[in-house]
């Protein structure tokens, strides 16, 4: 039952972060929201793995934790430089 409460809290927090992603007002607010929806997804999938009794879901959580970070940094690099990362690296 406690897993369900945790999933509920995570989903509620996701709703709030989604609202923030839609409302903005700046691009950075949206990036913050995306980043934390990512974290919440990681936790939600981990909790879901325990609800359904399949702990191999944790592999996905791990992958998400990493991808979330890479995506955030890539986006920030683009926004910060005002141009693409490919400009610099290719």
């Amino acid at each position: 039952m406690m897993f369900l409460a945790a999933a509920g809290a995570l989903i509620a927090a996701m709703v709030l972060a989604l609202a923030r992603a839609f409302a903005g007002p700046t691009v950075y607010d949206r990036i913050l929201a995306v980043n934390h929806i990512g974290t919440q997804t990681v936790l939600l999938i981990a909790v879901m793995g325990f609800i359904t009794g399949r702990p191999d879901f944790l592999d996905i959580s791990l992958l998400y934790a990493l991808i979330n970070f890479v995506a955030t940094i890539a986006v920030l690099r683009y926004v910060k430089r005002g141009r693409s990362t490919a400009d610099k690296e290719s």
């Binding site: 992603a21 903005g24 997804t41 879901m48």
Partner: peptide, 19 residues
Amino acid sequence: LASAMVLGIYSLLMASLWV
């Protein structure tokens, strides 16, 4: 830019759905 961000969220949610 905001649309791209929201699409990223979309993918995360779809992935959760697949799980």
